[in-house]
Simulated assay, not measured.
Amino acid sequence: MIAVLQRVSMARVVVAGQTVGEIGPGLLVLVCAEQGDTAAEGDKLLAKILKLRIFSDAQGKMNLSVQDMDGAGTVGGLLIVSQFTLAADVRGGNRPSFTAAAAPDEGRRLYDLFVEQARRAHPIVRTGQFAADMQVTLVNNGPVTIPLRIPPAVACAT
């Protein structure tokens, strides 16, 4: 799975003129399931996201995770948005190929599992709308933008 994290002061997703997800300080998580991904890759990705220390402590050092923010007096939110275009391959020309992305049904299943796990692990989780035309508004704090990739597990023949 692929994710791009943006540390935000606020983020919002609008679909057809209606806000479907919004957070204050926290992480905007753009996420893409790739062919071969399973729930295990989603679990690893979520664990990394929740523990990544990219928020400032009292001394201004990046030393707190989104979960640690609670101890600093603020509960950090997660706004999770599906974005299959993270799987874009532009090596062959100027028109991106998205063949590495999971098929839509499988992508939705893995996205839903990812969100479900996030809601079990974190108190503030909001989402976009899978496969919708979304307008995403954010204030990137820092700016801090981190790409993450958990490749599909490869079966080994013994």
Rank of each mutant, 00 (worst) to 15 (best):
A3K: 07
V4W: 15
L5K: 04
R7M: 03
M10F: 10
M10R: 15
R12T: 11
A16Y: 11
G17M: 05
G21A: 07
E22K: 09
I23N: 04
L28S: 13
V29A: 10
V29W: 08
V31K: 09
C32W: 06
E34H: 09
D37V: 06
A39D: 14
A39I: 06
A39L: 12
A40W: 00
G42L: 03
K44L: 13
A47F: 00
K48V: 10
L50V: 10
K51S: 11
K51W: 01
L52E: 02
R53I: 11
D57S: 00
V66E: 00
G73R: 01
G77L: 06
L79I: 13
I80V: 09
S82T: 07
S82Y: 10
F84G: 03
T85V: 10
R91F: 07
G92T: 08
P96F: 03
S97F: 09
F98H: 06
A100S: 14
E106G: 05
G107M: 12
L110N: 01
D112A: 14
E116M: 09
A118R: 01
R119K: 07
I124Y: 06
I124M: 02
V125F: 01
T127W: 12
A132C: 13
A132K: 15
M134E: 14
M134V: 04
T137G: 09
L138K: 05
L138P: 05
V139Y: 13
N140M: 02
N140G: 04
P143M: 05
V144Y: 03
T145W: 01
T145S: 08
P152N: 11
